[in-house]
Design a binder for these strands. Structure first.
Lengths: 128, 128
DNA sequence: GCGTAAATGAAAACGGTTGTCAAAATCGAG
DNA sequence: CTCGATTTTGACAACCGTTTTCATTTACGC
């Protein structure tokens, strides 16, 4: 049905970290793919809606997407320099969030947790 | 020096939860204050830079600000319905983030953690 | 007062994202 | 296969929050 959507998904699968829509678009065009920016946005939204990719917002308000290996709830450890991303589970955090919430009478607790750092290759490279 | 900045800060102090720039601007104008949108943005940025207010991004990319009681590192438990916000400390989470990071060879770990839920008043009100 | 520096705000610019709409591809009978 | 209906696509314009520009106003030091 949607060859385009699959193409976009494929780009994300081949990526190490989170990618922006424009970023994905640029790469596809560079590879010679015939696709419009609008379609990339639509494909990413659709993939996000169906839970096939994870989305998060950068500090400057851009939406970035990533095809994650795990379909289950997980968090990300992202290298702030190269973008390399590791999926991490955090049972301790889940429990903590739940506890903090109910402690204050809140229900239907959800949470967002992202961890940033400098990965070993980048910190080695930076030692100049 | 800057009466405007203080006025903006004051609005935030009187607010329960996070407020957007436009939101603050609208309220100030409604109160009859003579201020421009640009100045509100500048004041909020300045306050954020100096650490006097906390900033976070909503899912739709808006920046929202809050004058927090604690100057120390803390997280927020936000009611997704009314916006009421509780500041929470999470030593366990800090340690977890640090551990997860170094476990994968990452250094200079930082993290963002926000907890959302429905507060007791809102969940009572919703039982209609 | 008076000159210089900082603050202010209206309007224009910006950048990511979303909407519009007509053309192109796809599908489903017949 | 053919024709019409439906879906997908993409160029372009519209949007919206935010930032920049720049001329004007205000505050400060002397």
């Amino acid at each position: 049905m949607s060859n385009r959507r699959d193409a976009v998904h494929e780009i994300l699968r081949q990526s190490e970290g989170f990618r922006s829509a424009q970023d994905v678009y640029a790469e596809m065009r560079a590879e010679g793919a015939k696709i419009g920016l609008t379609t990339v946005y639509r494909a990413l939204q659709a993939l996000a809606d169906k839970g096939h990719v994870d989305v998060l917002r950068t500090d400057d308000g851009e939406s970035v997407y990533r095809a994650c290996a795990s379909g289950d709830h997980h968090h990300h450890l992202v290298c702030r320099r190269c973008g390399r991303t590791v999926e991490v589970a955090g049972p301790a955090v889940e429990r903590w969030a739940e506890a903090v919430g109910s402690e204050h009478g809140f229900t239907e607790i959800t949470h967002t947790v992202e961890v940033f750092g400098t990965c070993s290759s980048c910190s080695t490279a930076a030692r100049s």
